[in-house]
Simulated scan of single mutants.
Amino acid sequence: MVTERKRKVRELDASFNRAQEQVSEEQLRKKRGLFRRLTALAVIVVTLSVVAFMTIHTQAQLIDEKMEERQALEAKLEALQLEQVYLEQEIENYNDLEYIAEIARRDYFLAKDGEILFKLPKLSTD
């Protein structure tokens, strides 16, 4: 009861097989090319990112140094302005005859006519 059937399997043309192999090889080549391009693009992006980060970091350090230098210079400017105010006051004082007379009495022990100067010992605060 078992009947054997003969199967007829038709073989594909050799040209079709070669065409299919070429198509699969071309797809494989395209995938490899895509992978290479993506890898090259990733390397370029990473390199540019590192360079950008280093540039930003260097500029941030430079800005910090400049800010510290600015603060130091502003403090020096303030001190110089205070000194300028003091020196301008000294100029005004030295143009005043009464101030000059007071300095002459105090430092050089000069006296006006009829005036007697007494030099007192300094008191020690022990």
Score class of each variant (00 low, 15 high):
Thr3Leu: 06
Thr3Met: 02
Glu4Asn: 06
Lys6Asn: 01
Lys8Gly: 00
Val9Ile: 15
Arg10Thr: 15
Glu11Pro: 01
Glu11Asn: 06
Glu11Ala: 07
Leu12Pro: 11
Leu12Val: 14
Ser15Phe: 08
Phe16Pro: 00
Phe16Gly: 00
Phe16Ile: 15
Arg18Leu: 10
Ala19Asn: 12
Gln20Val: 06
Gln20Pro: 01
Glu21Thr: 06
Glu21Pro: 01
Gln22Gly: 13
Ser24Asn: 14
Glu26His: 11
Glu26Pro: 00
Gln27Asp: 01
Leu28His: 06
Lys30Gly: 05
Leu34Tyr: 02
Leu34His: 07
Leu34Ser: 03
Leu34Pro: 00
Arg36Lys: 15
Arg37Thr: 04
Leu38Arg: 15
Thr39Glu: 14
Ala40Thr: 09
Leu41Lys: 14
Leu41Ala: 09
Ala42Gln: 09
Val43Trp: 04
Val45Thr: 10
Val46Ala: 14
Val46Ile: 15
Ser49His: 02
Ser49Cys: 06
Val50Asp: 03
Val51Ala: 15
Ala52Lys: 03
Ala52Gln: 00
Ala52Tyr: 07
Phe53Ala: 11
Met54Ala: 14
Thr55Phe: 08
Thr55Ser: 15
Thr55Trp: 05
Ile56Leu: 11
Ile56Arg: 09
His57Ser: 15
Gln59Arg: 12
Gln59Ser: 04
Ala60Thr: 12
Ala60Phe: 10
Gln61Met: 12
Leu62Ser: 12
Asp64Met: 07
Asp64Phe: 02
Glu65Gly: 01
Glu65Ser: 13
Glu65Thr: 10
Glu65Lys: 12
Lys66His: 09
Met67Arg: 13
Met67Cys: 00
Glu68Ala: 13
Glu68Tyr: 07
Arg70Leu: 15
Gln71Val: 01
Gln71Lys: 13
Leu73Gln: 13
Glu74Asp: 05
Glu74Gly: 01
Ala75Asn: 09
Ala75Tyr: 06
Glu78Val: 04
Leu80Cys: 06
Leu80Asn: 07
Gln81Asp: 13
Gln81Gly: 02
Gln81Tyr: 11
Leu82Val: 06
Glu83Met: 12
Gln84Lys: 11
Gln84Pro: 00
Val85Phe: 10
Tyr86Met: 05
Tyr86Thr: 14
Leu87Cys: 05
Glu88Met: 03
Glu88Val: 02
Gln89His: 07
Gln89Trp: 03
Ile91Pro: 01
Ile91Gln: 03
Ile91Phe: 00
Glu92His: 08
Asn93Val: 02
Asn95Met: 06
Asp96Asn: 15
Asp96Ile: 07
Glu98Tyr: 04
Glu98His: 03
Ile100Asp: 01
Ala101Asp: 07
Ile103Tyr: 03
Ala104Ser: 14
Arg106Ser: 08
Asp107Gly: 00
Asp107Asn: 13
Phe109Gln: 14
Leu110Asn: 04
Ala111Glu: 09
Gly114Asp: 03
Gly114Thr: 01
Gly114Glu: 05
Glu115His: 03
Glu115Tyr: 04
Ile116Phe: 02
Ile116Ala: 02
Phe118Val: 12
Phe118His: 09
Lys119Met: 07
Leu120Val: 08
Lys122Ser: 04
Ser124Pro: 05
Ser124Glu: 12
Asp126Glu: 10
